[in-house]
């Protein structure tokens, strides 16, 4: 099947940056919230900036979740969440209140305990690989990626943790369960390493 990438459109501010890099890898890329594009896509990306609750509310309003859920959970289409797009995979988020998430990977989203270090955590930081994964093909342990966030995805399922990062505390920077993956950093702003990670994602089936 020919590749078609659907970047889910729900009014996230950085969707164009994601489109620019993804479109440079796979020409057939759309920014869309239409059921038809979600159904015909080979790979689905959920971008994100902002807070958990605000993102979830927009996602519920703008994206046909019944169709997305079927494509991802039943048909097992490769799915990648970026930053808040990763965080909403959790069952619950505690940013500005208590908000339900998609609940596709077991876990909760809570504030990063950075100790003396300032929040948000902004800048280039490295990952430490915990479990090997097709997303990391050709990438080194210690590879730097660009982060902007104050909250983190916590899970007790060790097998879902692909990589962690240190900033005051150790947190999960890449998680994955079957066809569903999430990255806390911004591959679309992480130059060569970000592009390689996205290319790896598009190789997943």
């Amino acid at each position: 099947m020919d590749k078609k990438i659907c970047i889910l459109d729900y009014g996230s501010g950085n969707v164009k940056s994601v489109f620019n890099i993804v479109g440079s890898i796979v020409q057939n890329t759309v920014i869309s919230n239409k059921a038809d594009d979600i159904r015909t896509a080979s790979h689905i990306i959920l971008p994100g900036v902002g807070s958990f609750g605000a993102a979830m509310e927009k996602i519920r309003h703008k994206i046909p979740l019944d169709i997305l859920t079927k494509e991802v959970l039943s048909k097992k289409k490769p799915f990648l969440g970026i930053c808040v797009g990763m965080q909403v995979l959790a069952a619950k988020g505690f940013e500005f209140g208590d908000h339900p998430g998609l609940g596709w990977i077991s876990g909760v989203v809570d504030k990063l305990d950075s100790g003396q270090l300032p929040l948000p955590h902004i800048g280039w930081n490295n990952i430490d690989i915990i479990n090997s994964h097709p997303l990391l093909q050709g990438l080194n342990n210690n590879q730097d990626f660009y982060f902007v966030h104050s909250y983190v995805f916590q899970t007790s399922n060790q097998e879902n943790i692909i990589a962690t990062t240190q900033y005051g505390q150790r947190f999960n920077s890449i998680i994955s369960k079957e066809n569903i993956s999430g990255v806390q950093f911004h591959p679309e702003k992480s130059q060569k390493a970000g592009k390689l990670l996205l290319s790896n994602f598009f190789q997943m089936r």
């Binding site: 620019n20 702003k189 992480s190 130059q191």
Partner: peptide, 8 residues
């Protein structure tokens, strides 16, 4: 520029 460089 933002279409060709993928950085902050």
């Amino acid at each position: 520029i933002s279409k060709v460089v993928f950085m902050p």
